[in-house]
Design a protein around this nucleic acid. Sequence first.
DNA 1: CCGCTCCTGTACCGCCGGTACGGTTTTCGG
DNA 2: CCGAAAACCGTACCGGCGGTACAGGAGCGG
Lengths: 206, 206
Amino acid sequence: MRKGEETRTRLLDVAEAAVLAKGFGATSIDELIAETGITKSGFFYHFRDKNELAKALLERYIENDERIYDEIFSRAHELSDDPLQAFLLGLKLLSELLSDLPNGHPGCLVATMCTQERAFDREIQEINRQAALMWRRRFGGMFRDIMRHYRPREALDADQLADMVSTVIEGGIVISKALKEPKSLPDQLLVFRTFVRMLFQPIAQA
Amino acid sequence: MRKGEETRTRLLDVAEAAVLAKGFGATSIDELIAETGITKSGFFYHFRDKNELAKALLERYIENDERIYDEIFSRAHELSDDPLQAFLLGLKLLSELLSDLPNGHPGCLVATMCTQERAFDREIQEINRQAALMWRRRFGGMFRDIMRHYRPREALDADQLADMVSTVIEGGIVISKALKEPKSLPDQLLVFRTFVRMLFQPIAQA
DNA sequence: CCGCTCCTGTACCGCCGGTACGGTTTTCGG
DNA sequence: CCGAAAACCGTACCGGCGGTACAGGAGCGG
């Protein structure tokens, strides 16, 4: 029982790295079981088929993603009571965290699953959609909180601003990978941060 | 000669739609030749292997992409001599163009190739990188032009701003697909447009 | 009529995802 | 410590897919 979980986790670890590096289709089961030190029967004991592996992979990835966001932004809110300052600090912390990844961001499984790889079944698409909606709720809440304290220089929708966070991260990952410049992603986040700061900065009185 | 080109083009058309819909790995050669009305031998007459198909697909996609940007922004520069206004107009035109796609943006092959799908060979990765660099040059030039006429409210690097255009587009495509909301992508572009306008807006004198 | 482009047809290979199923070891609660 | 469930192993097999190897043919310009 305990052992089962452990093997499953190891399988998922190996699979996640391979999928992010080469894509889902290019990752063979034979390859995964070889590296995990398991047999094919063992694999199919844990996962009904490859699609279920994808599902488990995605769910675990999203969970971990949420955990990281929770940590960073709760940390930021500890450091500042002001919602705007806390958000800006969170972006900064996130950017720094991304800068410290030596080989750049390994890639987002949500993007992997939705941008590519077979017509994944409805279930996975729905998980993906829920993930994007969670991001929207998370950051949307922050922006609404900020808007209660600051008057934006331009009228912008809180949900659209929230989506912009996800957009910059997902797009930054793509551009960073295409350019082979790991620094691009954290840089893009900081540019976005500047935009947000500018948006809510009180207009200077002459 | 003429006939060969025509068949090749038809193959690429079919392949592009399939790849953007299901991913490269999930698109089988058998499927492509069935829809094109050609035999397997015929396919391998045009392309040495699947990787060469990917290369041709990508090159054609990027060419077309550049053509669209050329059209939109040359159009915008006809309508306004001011570099800032022309750029803002271009973003607006682009956003409208994206809004008019009934099923949303079909996906970007650059993202498809770099985010996923097998360890594509160096050649394809290099094509991808060049595409991203072209985008940077294109938009970077526009931002530098703008900066000669307008003083930005915050000091931001022109190349990073240029990358932000690509980032928002690529990220917007991902988020739009994940959310299954085609409108997200054009909306995100407009939010970015607002940021750019705000960045270069002269500070109002009280 | 030659030769080139642009294919068709057939046969075959190895990898991969997946199924089936019987057997074996490991683990843990009672 | 025992028994049952959990967690595998081994083997054999299937069809689909990417890819190879040729042999040959239709159509067309020179």
